[in-house]
Design a protein around this nucleic acid. Structure first.
Length: 857
RNA sequence: GGCCCCGUGGCGGAAUUGGUAGACGCACGCGACUUAAAAUCGCGAGCCUAUGGCGUGGGGGUUCGAGUCCCCCCGGGGCCACCA
């Protein structure tokens, strides 16, 4: 019997698809379009299991939608700028460009072996000038439109990477990649005005109904809308005022101090004449923002000696502090403190002996005796100690006090967002140059469009600290495009999230002279199904949503939301292993000895099996996809990726699970190619259904129709594991039909063909090979998804459960839509029911037609 | 600290969305084939003190009926976090 030659077969069909251009697409307006996109990879050198899962999921959707008659765009490219290339340059003396291109070539070859239905003619790499020249143009358009601007600001500085980080790249006070403690520095940086779209980005989340709730919530929180008031506190003896933001204007009569951030302009001004204050400010800037630092850090303040006048009572003043817990970046960088109803303010007040006046009375408290101890009261209650606000609820007091402030012109309603503008400048080499020129006489001027792209120099030195572009002897020296005098280029490059914020549009017209043709982009976009990791829930997805709006404003396309549907896949996880010395071991270094004990392969030393965790190089719990595909083939790897867990959940990679998938691949092969072993003859191509068939054949025929229906439903709901299970169930059913049954060879033909069409999105090579061997012609990928007969997915006779008081006591067979009386009568005759009733007359019998009978005793 | 998710056999997970809990697979056991093993095929299997009882983390509730809905608790996870 011929064995399934995976390698040969998979290679054969991959070549056939490529030669035939099967997956190349154009804007075919006769079909509905469907754009499937997986988050494109960083070319790190080799694909890992996370990639395999991601692209398998995408290919499942792409091939299914294609079979359903959609014109499917399914492209792939490379997110090719980034720091690792520079690190490689430093460590291995290889140019980032060379390193990146070699990695791309290696990874492309690995992807091609997976049999993914990509239109490779659209492949892009973001490090190519043909790609990034367009984003330089976009940036100039953004500057023109007021969406990009330069400002001096306190930035997060990663001392290890020698670069600025966006807020989103600071995790727990540390650089997201280096892990180094982030410092504050004052630098001139380019920003994109994402805050201008804060409200729009927030309210549009509601319309993203095919996004996971989790991601929508994360974006919601990240934008962080707060409703409150802006309140003016005049400064006694000065002609300026302090502007504070508060979400609790109702507690204004409980104010006992004001506090400003260390970096507040007023702090800086006062510090200029006050060395003690200057020292305090410097100390605040040094303070870490890690979780530990924040929890242990005391609320500290420096009394400026200034007094702020209460906005609702000119005779009332409070002290003004510079405080280490006030953030310049949020609100106005200044607060008023109401210790009774805010924990931080309370801690601060207790430390500096400031007044604590409660102004919100808890519902069951007594006004005469209620006191604040060490915990602030932040709940709902009735306002008191607050003059004209007394007796109001918190909400009523808020709006009432804002009305008064507005009348007196000392405050107004204000909405503040946590979201900050996106700082895009990076002091790195391997990124897209910011196309700007600094001229001493003309200021900052854009590089003329005709001079784009501004390309990176190739002869750079990576050994010196800092930015190689800045260190380069000649690159930055240019003539000013306005006055012709000497000028220098901007030596910063863009944050790499810049490239990934529009690549989905470039795929619509990947080889075009312009960024993309608006007609093509408008045809393909939005991406119908985007698939990738949850780690991009905020950064990449939020930037892309903003970028799309910005591009719309600049006339590039007509679209707000780039991704209509989003699927966030779980991680691929694996057991961890350690040897007796505590060193991590690769899965290939351990094995199961007699008795189930884990030992090392080499010398049989005992192995400690640890937690099941995300695959990571440091813990060595990685499995190389290439080795798996080499052994079992791409189809087996793909099938396992789909079958064990639903996509959003983590998937544990196990050798046994892969073996299971491998067995199924071979089982299908044997079943359909070897009548002797598979159990029965397969009818000839085009064989018609016999008029008379055995009941077992008729039953299996129904199973085929039901499976066609349920597999499609499962795929539509991304329950790929269920879809695989349903196919397996059908295969079991087909195998059980006796070969002697009348109509069995017809059934096999029908059943096998159907199975092959159902598994095409999962295991495309096997499906195509079997399709051809069953007599099918051409590409199975071009064959439509099978249909089903609605009459055959509905059973004529149903098995209905019969319960007594909610406990199942047996089942009855009933024709579909049987009379309630008939169902009741049949149910009451069941021995199990008679026994459970023990001679008692049922009080009531609930009959839900075609569903259930419940006898209430 | 705030907000949000999730707890189903030895394991991954199903369950028509309130209607026979445990599909499908993994692991396991038994049998067939084999000199033997592998592969393959067949059978078995939630648990228990088994013609019955108990079972979806625990407790309560709604309902004829709850894995599914509501309340409380326990456990695990995620995101954000000196955000005024």
């Amino acid at each position: 019997m011929e064995r399934y030659n995976v390698k040969e077969t998979e290679a054969k069909w991959q070549k056939a698809w490529a030669d035939a251009g099967t997956f190349e697409v154009t804007e075919d307006r006769s079909k509905p379009k469907y754009y499937v996109l997986e988050m494109f990879p960083y070319p790190s050198g080799r694909i890992h299991m996370g990639h395999v899962r991601n692209y398998t999921l995408g290919d499942m959707v792409a091939r299914y939608k294609r079979a359903k008659g959609f014109n499917v765009l399914h492209p792939m490219g490379w997110d090719a700028f980034g720091l690792p290339a520079e690190n490689a340059a430093f460590e291995r003396r290889v140019h980032p460009d060379t390193w990146t291109r070699e990695n791309i070539a290696a990874m492309r070859a690995q992807l091609k072996v997976m049999g993914l239905s990509y239109d490779w003619t659209r492949e892009i790499a973001t490090c190519a000038p043909e790609y990034y020249k367009h984003e330089q143009k976009m940036f100039l358009d953004f500057v023109e439109a007021g969406l990009a601007y330069r400002k001096e600001s306190w930035v997060n500085w990663d001392p290890e990477e020698n670069t600025v980080l966006a807020n989103e790249q600071v995790i727990d006070g540390r650089g997201w990649r280096s892990g180094a403690l982030v410092e504050k520095r004052l630098l001139s940086q380019w920003f994109l005005k994402i805050t201008e779209y804060a409200e729009d980005l927030l309210s549009a989340i509601e319309g993203l109904d095919r996004w996971p709730d989790r991601v929508r919530l994360m974006q919601h929180n990240w934008i962080g809308r707060s409703e409150g008031a802006k309140v003016r506190f005049e400064l006694e003896g000065r002609d300026d005022a302090l502007e504070v933001f508060t979400t609790r204007p109702d507690t204004l009569f409980g104010a006992s101090f004001c506090a400003i951030a260390a970096n507040h302009p007023l702090s800086s001004a006062l510090a200029a004449d006050n060395p003690d204050l200057a020292a305090f400010v410097a100390e605040c800037n040094r303070m870490g923002t890690s979780e530990v630092a924040l929890e242990t850090a005391e609320k500290r303040g420096f009394d400026t000696g200034l007094r702020a006048v209460h906005p609702l009572d000119p005779t009332w003043t409070v002290p003004v502090y510079v405080a280490n817990f006030v953030l310049m970046e949020y609100g106005s960088g200044a607060i008023f403190g109401c210790p009774a109803h805010d924990q931080r303010d309370l801690d601060f007040a207790r430390k500096y002996g400031l007044e604590v006046t409660p102004v919100v009375l808890p519902p069951d408290a007594d006004a005469a005796s209620f006191e604040i101890g060490t915990e602030a009261f932040v709940g709902e209650g009735t306002i008191y100690n607050s003059r004209f606000l007394d007796g109001l609820s918190v909400d009523d007091a808020k709006s009432r006090v804002i009305d008064s402030l507005e009348e007196m012109a000392s405050g107004s309603r204000e909405i503040t967002y946590r979201l900050r503008d996106w700082g895009v400048s990076r002091q790195r080499y391997w990124g897209c140059p910011v196309p700007m020129i600094h001229c001493e006489s003309c200021g900052i001027v854009p590089v003329p469009e005709a001079d784009l792209p501004v390309t990176l120099p190739t002869d750079v030195d990576f050994d010196a600290p800092g930015n190689p572009l800045d260190n380069h002897p000649t690159w930055k020296h240019v003539t000013c495009p306005v006055c012709g005098g000497h000028a220098v280029r901007e030596t910063d490059t863009f944050d790499t999230f810049f490239e990934s914020s529009w690549y989905f549009a470039r795929f619509c017209d990947a080889q075009g002279e312009t960024a993309f043709d608006a007609d093509k982009a408008n045809y393909w976009l939005p991406v119908d199904q985007y698939i990738g990791g949850i780690e991009h829930a905020v950064l990449h997805l939020l930037y892309s949503r903003f970028f799309t709006r910005a591009l719309k404003r600049c006339g590039y396309l007509d679209l707000d939301e780039p991704f209509a549907g989003l699927l966030t896949q779980g991680m691929v996880i694996h057991e961890t292993y350690k040897d007796p010395d505590g060193s991590w071991l690769f899965p290939t270094e351990v094995t199961r000895a007699e008795g189930g004990k884990w030992v090392t392969v080499d010398d049989q030393r005992p192995v400690v099996v640890g937690r099941i965790e995300k695959m990571s190089k440091s813990k060595r719990n990685v499995v190389d996809p290439e080795a798996i595909i080499d052994t079992y083939g791409a189809d087996t790897a793909r099938l396992f990726m789909l079958s064990d867990s639903p996509p959003e959940r983590d998937l544990e990679w196990t050798e046994a699970g892969v073996e299971g998938a491998w067995r199924f691949v071979n089982r299908l092969w044997r079943m359909m190619t070897d009548a002797g072993n598979g159990g029965g003859e397969i009818g000839p191509l085009g064989m018609a259904r016999p008029d008379a068939v055995d009941p077992s054949v008729a039953e299996a025929e129904r199973a085929i129709h039901k499976t066609v229906k349920s597999v499609a439903e499962s795929i539509e709901r991304f329950r790929f594991n269920a879809a695989v299970a349903q196919v397996r169930e059908l295969v079991n059913t087909l195998a059980d039909v006796p070969s002697t049954a009348t109509g069995s060879s017809w059934l096999r033909r029908f059943g096998y063909e159907t199975v092959v069409r159902l598994i095409e999105p999962m295991t495309p090579h096997l499906a195509q090979e079997l399709w051809t061997r069953l007599g099918g012609t051409g590409m199975l990928a071009d064959v439509a998804w099978p249909g089903f007969d609605p009459a055959l997915v509905i059973d004529d006779v149903l098995t209905i459960a019969v319960q007594v008081n909610g406990k199942t006591r047996g089942t009855i067979e009933l024709p579909r839509d049987a009379e309630k009386d008939a169902a009741e009568a049949a149910a009451l005759e069941l021995p199990g029911v008679v026994r459970a009733l023990a001679g008692k007359t049922p009080k009531r019998v609930v009959v839900v037609p075609n569903r259930i009978v419940n006898v209430v005793g």
